[in-house]
Design a protein around this nucleic acid. Structure first.
Length: 320
DNA sequence: AATTCGGGGAA
DNA sequence: TTCCCAGAATT
């Protein structure tokens, strides 16, 4: 804020005027109709289970890496019941290197809960979805909206960024999902009175796609953006992100996540191995013995590995 | 509100 | 190297 005191009622020069939501709705939804990617979990024949699997896999993992794993997963386990009945080791193997393998176990646990609590059918109610393992606020809303057409407020990282630029006029939304951002997203939802929520769901999907394809984090394609002339961030001169808005990079080299990942890569080969051989053979010369052992222990605690005596394997393969 | 939890491809 | 990706669970 400048030190200068402005006249009463005068607009602050830097404060962008947010566009009318209705105008943005029409532009973005029309753009989506012609520019949307043909993703398999968007096809009309995709089941709610297929949508649910895609949403879990897409948590922090890019679309291009999810695609082949999703196809394999749905081919093997076309229903929650089939997934629930699978060996956990197979679950983790098919998950492969999507990352955060606890998601795979939680997805199977969700499938089990769906069989037990919902007669094997993915629930449409967002509260019922939210109660399933691995399903939080975003995923519950997304499944409810994309699989069942229920006009929930869907807010992912793409939508937060698009909202921040178009309506708030800042480069990036910041690291944490604030109450103000949640309120903004809710206020921006199209009316559901007329069409029962069809337009609201289209708005969710379209805004997400806009953030993924046009309004990207690094170099947004404003030249081909359907709302460039309405965008508050553009109107403000496309100011760069502040230090507060920048995401502080997560360290990777030397972290437990790296060591755990290296251990899981070995276990995914399928053969039980000696703990000492496994830990000594990790391609991480920097890692101390203490860290290697700690990470293996944590994997066992997380149910991602099983240990009997000196032998370690994926869960279930060591038998009773 | 801050941390932890994988992994890879592009800037 | 750093950044970013359809987040969730835990503290």
């Amino acid at each position: 804020m400048p030190e200068t005191v402005l006249p009463e009622g005068a607009a602050v020069a830097d404060a962008p005027i947010p566009p009318a939501p209705d105008d943005v709705h029409t532009r973005v939804i029309d753009w989506f109709a012609e520019a949307a990617r043909d993703l398999p979990w968007r096809r009309p024949e995709c089941t709610p289970w297929g949508v649910l699997v895609s949403e879990i896999m897409l948590q922090q993992t890019p679309v291009v890496r999810v695609l082949p794993r999703w196809e394999e997963w749905l081919h093997r386990w076309p229903t929650p019941a089939a997934c629930a009945a699978a060996p956990s080791a197979e679950i983790l193997t098919v998950w492969d290197r999507l990352g955060y393998p606890r998601r795979a176990l939680r997805l199977q646990a969700a499938a089990e809960a769906i069989v037990e609590r919902h007669d094997g059918e993915v629930p449409a109610d967002p509260e019922a979805l939210r109660a399933l393992p691995g399903i939080g606020e975003y995923t519950a809303a997304a499944v409810s909206c994309f699989a069942f057409g229920i006009p929930e407020v869907v807010v992912d990282t793409n939508i937060r960024r698009a909202h921040a630029r178009i309506f708030t006029g800042v480069a990036l939304p910041g690291q944490t999902y604030t109450a103000a951002q949640r309120r903004l997203a809710r206020d921006l939802m199209p009316d559901t009175d007329d069409d029962g929520g069809r337009r609201a769901c289209a708005w969710n999907a379209a805004t997400m796609e806009l953030g993924a394809l046009i309004c990207t984090a690094r170099s947004p394609q404003c030249a081909i953006c359907p709302v460039a002339d309405l965008c508050a961030w553009r109107a403000a001169g496309s100011p760069p992100p502040t230090e507060e808005q920048k995401t502080r990079g997560q360290a990777w080299a030397g972290t437990d996540r790296q060591v755990r990942g290296a251990i899981m890569a070995v276990l995914r080969r399928g053969e039980p191995v000696q703990a000492e051989t496994l830990l000594a053979g990790l391609p991480l010369p920097e890692a101390e013995d203490d860290q290697r052992r700690r990470c293996l222990d944590s994997l066992v605690r997380d149910g991602l590995a099983e240990r009997r005596g000196d032998i370690v394997a994926l869960p279930g393969v060591l038998g009773g």
